[in-house]
Simulated scan of single mutants.
Amino acid sequence: MSLYFDNEKLFDQEGHLTDDGLYALKDGTLDDLGALEAAEHLSFCDLCLLRYTDLIDAAPACLQEPMRDLIPQVQNLMRLRRFRIMTNRYVSAAAAVVLAFVLWGFASLGASRRMAERTVEPQQPRASFGQWLDTTVSGFYDSLDDTFSNFTLAAENGLAQLQHHEDGDTSAKGD
């Protein structure tokens, strides 16, 4: 004996789903092919869809409710999507900053190189591309290092001023 509904009894002579076929669809006792045929038929037959809807509406209220709460799962998916969007924004911003530093380094080093070339005697041979690239990249890293050093120095000075200001407030309160 098979656990599945007989697909030969799924449709009547007029091509509509039988009552037994609708119950089998509702109970989940159709095999994959039967479920596919029934779903396809319901997608275009309004009469059978209305009968199937009435059958589901007549079911007890406990069967009409979802088996589990979907809100936590949807919230987790929304958090994941928000994280991905924010990550993409920060990655794009970081890429833009790096590109700006690279272009700034090339532009500033190109100008300084042109100034240096004006003072070079014409008898000296021009530097090869590899030497120029090495000079440019090392100059860029030097300027980047200077920038970070200045930033660190400014941050340390600001922290020292805050500490001094807090020390002054505590001594004024103690008086």
Rank of each mutant, 00 (worst) to 15 (best):
L55A: 08
L55C: 03
L55K: 09
I56F: 10
I56Q: 04
D57G: 03
D57N: 13
A58Q: 13
A58P: 13
C62V: 13
L63E: 15
L63A: 10
L63D: 15
Q64H: 11
E65F: 03
E65W: 03
P66M: 12
P66A: 12
M67S: 12
M67L: 13
M67H: 11
R68E: 15
L70I: 09
L70H: 07
I71S: 12
I71Y: 11
I71G: 10
P72H: 01
P72K: 02
Q73R: 01
Q73F: 00
Q75W: 01
Q75G: 03
Q75Y: 01
N76Y: 04
R79K: 04
L80A: 00
R81V: 00
R82L: 01
F83I: 00
I85D: 00
M86A: 10
M86T: 14
M86G: 05
M86S: 06
T87G: 03
T87D: 02
N88L: 07
R89V: 06
R89E: 04
S92C: 14
S92F: 03
A93K: 08
A93N: 10
A93R: 06
A93L: 07
A93Q: 11
A94N: 10
A94W: 05
A94E: 12
A95C: 10
A95K: 09
A95Y: 02
A95D: 04
A96P: 04
V98N: 13
V98M: 13
L99C: 07
F101T: 10
F101Q: 14
V102A: 04
V102N: 02
V102H: 02
W104K: 09
G105M: 00
F106D: 01
F106I: 07
F106M: 03
S108C: 05
S108W: 08
S112K: 09
R113A: 02
R113D: 03
R114C: 08
R114L: 06
M115I: 04
M115N: 12
A116Y: 08
A116Q: 14
A116R: 15
E117F: 04
R118H: 06
R118D: 07
T119D: 12
T119Y: 13
V120R: 15
V120C: 12
E121Q: 11
E121W: 09
Q123V: 14
Q124V: 15
R126L: 10
R126I: 06
R126W: 12
A127T: 04
S128Y: 05
G130Q: 05
W132P: 05
L133I: 08
L133Q: 08
D134Y: 12
T135S: 15
T136H: 08
S138H: 03
G139I: 04
F140N: 04
F140I: 06
Y141G: 00
Y141D: 00
Y141W: 02
Y141Q: 01
Y141T: 00
D142T: 14
D145A: 09
D145P: 00
D145C: 04
D145G: 07
D146C: 06
F148R: 02
F148S: 02
S149G: 06
N150Y: 10
N150M: 06
N150D: 15
T152S: 09
T152G: 05
L153W: 12
L153N: 07
L153S: 05
A154Y: 07
A154Q: 14
A154N: 14
G158F: 15
L159Y: 15
L159I: 10
Q161I: 14
L162G: 13
L162H: 13
L162Y: 15
Q163G: 03
Q163T: 14
Q163D: 09
H164Q: 14
H164C: 08
H164S: 11
H165Q: 13
E166H: 07
E166Y: 06
